[in-house]
Design a protein around this nucleic acid. Structure first.
Lengths: 335, 335
DNA sequence: CGATCTACGTAGATTGATCTACGAATCGTT
DNA sequence: AACGATTCGTAGATCAATCTACGTAGATCG
């Protein structure tokens, strides 16, 4: 701590240099009422000269931070990057700054969310955190929050979800139409059929449709790592009656399934994913998947949040439509 | 602003409930000297009961924020996600919190960096921002910074780079060994041969080796978007003497080049990238590339930063070694 | 047994901004 | 010229923490 911190200029320094009061400088900064052009001029010159920038922390003590917090799980999933891209776009056009707190793999989303709240963000977006709804509802009155992916119907916060039921159904019907009957499913370890998470919803639809078909569901669960997804796919292939098609809970899982299929020489097994990440359209991947417009979801989330910050009281639960993208990874089963 | 903010508990509230002074509570929180077990007990109970969490902003006014800022460009580039993964890992084991400020595509890195500084981060990591070294050196005395990717030799801040010269040379020698003589290069719009950026270094090596070979360099420049990279690749293919191999400045560019090759039916043109992103090893991509251990670079960056925060004065310029990963995307040229 | 030491707590200043009052100057009216 | 209405600027409280002094017990010691 023997730092020779070339002490940053404070509002006091600016005021002294411009020969005005601190309050006057504050007014200029905030573009508030009661500032003569002459004073504005002098103050701005002083700010310029000193390279002054207001400390957000000091501001936070009184009012707002003009900051939007974004909790981001699994950095390696490009779908989340899509959402974040949309969020960034919208924030770009406002006076707000976006700051992202990543959740380390396998850890609870609580810590990054708390970290953002500790930094007094004016609003918070989180991607499908696995926390209790009650906990979120305790936070929401103090800080507006928008959940992406969680299908809960809270009156206290907004949600943006994909049409997971519709999307999963679209995809499964597509496989069935191709002639598949033994369809395996890869999902994440924590998903429960029909729960409020996207994977839970997709799993629920999968089980329902399996029941309709009269087939026994063939589900493999994957942990966080890429290897886990690979292993899950291998387990499906090793089943007594291996599937002719695999519906992976998302594209990242699907990519690992493709890898496993290639290694197992199971060239004729179809694979489909969910999310339509950029790479899915690459000719070497050519993955059939569901596009739920991640960029749009990110945009919507921030828009809803800004509305909340501006004072809206009524909850909004937005749903992004799901569209099937048929590509080469799915075809009729080999006879 | 008609928010019924269920006012968060402050240190004053905790002190009142525990029947002690504010300073006492502060001591307990900071684990400072002069606290009896009995008092600690009572204070912790009060903290628990009120769900109290200290405001980082208020703390920042006096001391540190225990926050590390991370400037992240181009969310869509999975290599940066790798670096961030490494950074997250190291921060995980400390009392610091990582917050990320993304740079919107095509915008200056200055704004996100300033935003982090305004929030009084204790240290800052940035990925190859295109700003003047002088500007960084003005920041560094007040806030320790570590630059990833920039090959500058500043005495005021640390750097972590890949061995871009070695890596580019490895890759080009590999192509030459395969028999390629007409090798095209895709780089980013702002790169200048030999400048301090990774792309500039790689471009410099490319031009040097082209000169050694006595061939005219064939360089296409790409803007930020995926389409730009695709177009750049198309331009290379449309040259009078189209290349038999393409060395893309990074894997993201290489993936677009593959797409362009597929669309152009140029099945026999080799492609190589740089970074070894996860997808490069996928059987459908199978991209020859350079692994420069992005995760390790992220880890090193945070370690160096923590050392600086702890008081180190001497600069460190770490270099991550480059390793060639030969895959199916490069082969001998068609005769 | 009185002096010193240590452990434990507290009072109050401090940090950098915002914001509410309020005072002073300027202006147009009648 | 006197009046209220604007306009411009400042003083000082305030926000939630930290941190330096300093006070008060009780323990230790010669």
């Amino acid at each position: 701590m023997t730092r020779t911190a070339a002490a940053q200029a404070t509002i006091q320094d600016v005021a002294a240099l411009a020969g005005v009061s601190r309050a006057a400088v504050s007014k200029v900064i905030r573009d508030a009422y009661g500032v003569s052009p002459a004073m504005r001029e002098r103050v701005n010159a002083a700010i310029e000269q000193l390279g002054y920038r207001p400390r957000v922390g000091a501001r936070a003590l009184r009012g707002a931070t003009h900051t939007i917090g974004f909790e981001l799980p699994a950095l390696t999933n490009p779908f989340f990057a899509k959402i974040l891209t949309g969020a960034t776009e919208v924030v770009e056009d406002t006076a707000y700054q976006l700051i992202v707190a990543p959740t380390p793999p396998g850890k609870s989303e609580r810590r990054p969310i708390d970290a953002l709240l500790d930094r007094q963000v004016d609003g918070l977006v989180a991607i499908s955190p696995e926390v209790e709804q009650e906990w979120l509802e305790r936070l929401a009155p103090a800080t507006p929050i928008v959940m992406i992916g969680r299908h809960d119907d809270s009156p206290l916060y907004d949600t943006v979800t994909g049409d997971d039921e519709g999307g999963a159904e679209l995809l499964l019907r597509h496989l069935i139409d191709l002639g598949h009957r033994r369809i395996g499913h890869i999902t994440i370890a924590t998903a429960r059929p029909g729960d409020t998470s996207p994977h839970g919803r997709r799993l629920g639809v999968y089980e329902r449709i399996a029941a309709e078909l009269g087939t026994t569901p063939l589900v493999a669960r994957s942990g966080q790592g890429a290897d886990d997804a690979y292993d899950a796919a291998r387990r499906l292939l090793a089943a007594d009656q291996p599937p002719t098609a695999i519906f992976a809970g998302n594209d990242t899982l699907a990519l690992e399934a493709q890898r496993a299929l290639a290694d197992a020489g199971a060239r004729d097994v179809s694979v489909a994913g969910y999310d339509d990440v950029d790479i899915a359209g690459h000719p070497g991947i050519d993955l059939t998947t569901i596009d739920q417009d991640g960029v749009g979801m990110g945009r919507t989330a921030v828009r809803l949040l800004l509305e909340r910050i501006a004072g809206r009281d009524q909850p909004v639960h937005a749903v992004s439509p799901a569209a099937l993208r048929v590509r080469g990874s799915t075809r009729a089963p080999a006879v």
